[in-house]
Design a protein around this nucleic acid. Sequence first.
DNA 1: TGATTTCGGACTAAAATTGTCCTGTTGCTC
DNA 2: GAGCAACAGGACAATTTTAGTCCGAAATCA
Lengths: 153, 153
Amino acid sequence: MQITRAGEYGVLGLLHLARRGAARMALIDDISREEEIPKSFLAKIFQSLVKAGVVRSYRGAGGGFALTRKPSEITVLEIIEAIEGKIALQRCQLDVPDCEHMEGCALCGLFERAQDRVRDVFSGTTLADLVATEATLPAKTRHTRKLELAALK
Amino acid sequence: MQITRAGEYGVLGLLHLARRGAARMALIDDISREEEIPKSFLAKIFQSLVKAGVVRSYRGAGGGFALTRKPSEITVLEIIEAIEGKIALQRCQLDVPDCEHMEGCALCGLFERAQDRVRDVFSGTTLADLVATEATLPAKTRHTRKLELAALK
DNA sequence: TGATTTCGGACTAAAATTGTCCTGTTGCTC
DNA sequence: GAGCAACAGGACAATTTTAGTCCGAAATCA
């Protein structure tokens, strides 16, 4: 299992929330429009994040989503695993023992080490870190970036 | 892109060659039987490895495959990337600029760091290392392992 | 020549990804 | 409590990727 769009969109959506300050609410509709993520797909993704306790949802008029914690207390690992399940480079590494390789499985050990490095990186990065990084980068809108890419082709 | 069976089978196949000593040849047919990998799939995988210069092929009667270098000079990274292309956690990281995220793409930077850690692990491990690791592990045949797993269910 | 073995491309089935859609359910406000 | 606003959740569908299969051709050896 790798990082799919679902995971990417999830981080992007939460990043949106993190940017607008602590407990401010936002509508799925607004997030999807501003981040250019398909609305119904994002809605589905946020359901997982609610279940995982990363965001709270408020129904009804005036509702929306808000982070349950400070951005500095939410790691990227937590977000991605809430959406995609445990990160695994290989089926070897999944919960249920499902690997039936050769002797003792030297390969599984290797995959496990690689995967642990990935988890290290993701667990060591919070939403607050990403927001801070953004601030140091040239602020291009996603739309501008798209135009640039189109021009390259 | 993650590690698929193709990559796994490739490493397993080469490991088989590495175990039987330096330049000894082996038939696809034997490797596939002993490692329990579908033959025509493995054949296809080995074609990529030939192209990448990791193994040499000899056609005709008495032919087969042999490593072109010592197992200690062949890294797992090289094998996997020969088969699956460059390892990338996300389309962001692929050759062609294909990412069109928001401002400056803090996420892409993060994915890149994670992916670099994976490549570190794989480029730091050679076939010889894997063979050595196997020697320290309880030698179970793949078949035995399968039976154990079946018993767990 | 004939047996053996890889080469390479076309093809296919199954699974995962990436969505859409529709029918709730909840909660707010008048 | 009527009606609207917003999320919840399941069924469904299109596309892409994975995981192979198959077969004819080319090379090599005896």
